[in-house]
Simulated assay, not measured.
Amino acid sequence: MSRLQHPNIVRLYELIDDPRCDQQFLVMECVRGWTLQRPVARRESIPEEDLRHWLREVYLGLEHLHIHGVAHRDVKPDNILWDPEQRRAKLTDFGTAALLSHSRDAPVGGTL
């Protein structure tokens, strides 16, 4: 995940593995905004221009993942953050992501 640096992917800065308590901690980029589920839940009418912008941002993030052999496998509004300061949609929650084999695009090692 740390090698997947892209403006449309929430950045992972560090992974802390604490063997004393058998837990892992992710230090990630702080995105001050909301998920794209918020306007869905509120039944807001979103202007077409905004929707095109959001989808383009998601597409660019997914394209970057696929170029690097990663399948997100859980793309939904809850896993897309909107950063109003940068006007950028960012993919997050890679808990079900998988590495792909470029030869046949099949998962090769389970989840990331």
Rank of each mutant, 00 (worst) to 15 (best):
R3W: 14
R3V: 13
I9V: 15
V10A: 13
R11D: 07
Y13M: 11
E14N: 09
E14P: 03
L15M: 14
D18K: 08
P19L: 13
Q23H: 12
Q24A: 11
F25R: 07
L26N: 04
L26F: 15
L26M: 14
L26A: 14
M28T: 09
C30F: 14
C30P: 00
V31N: 06
W34I: 02
T35Q: 03
A41G: 07
E44P: 00
E44V: 02
P47Y: 03
E49F: 06
L51R: 02
H53K: 11
W54G: 02
W54R: 02
L55N: 00
R56Q: 09
V58F: 01
Y59G: 04
L60I: 00
L60Q: 13
L60E: 10
E63V: 05
H64W: 09
L65N: 00
H68C: 04
G69T: 01
V70Y: 04
A71N: 05
R73P: 04
K76S: 02
K76I: 00
P77M: 01
D78Q: 13
N79W: 02
N79I: 01
L81T: 06
L81Y: 04
W82H: 08
P84K: 08
E85K: 12
R87S: 13
R87Q: 14
R88P: 03
R88D: 01
R88S: 08
A89R: 06
A89G: 12
L91I: 06
L91T: 03
F94A: 08
F94G: 09
A97Q: 11
A97D: 09
L99F: 14
L99K: 10
L100G: 08
D105F: 15
D105G: 10
A106M: 11
V108N: 12
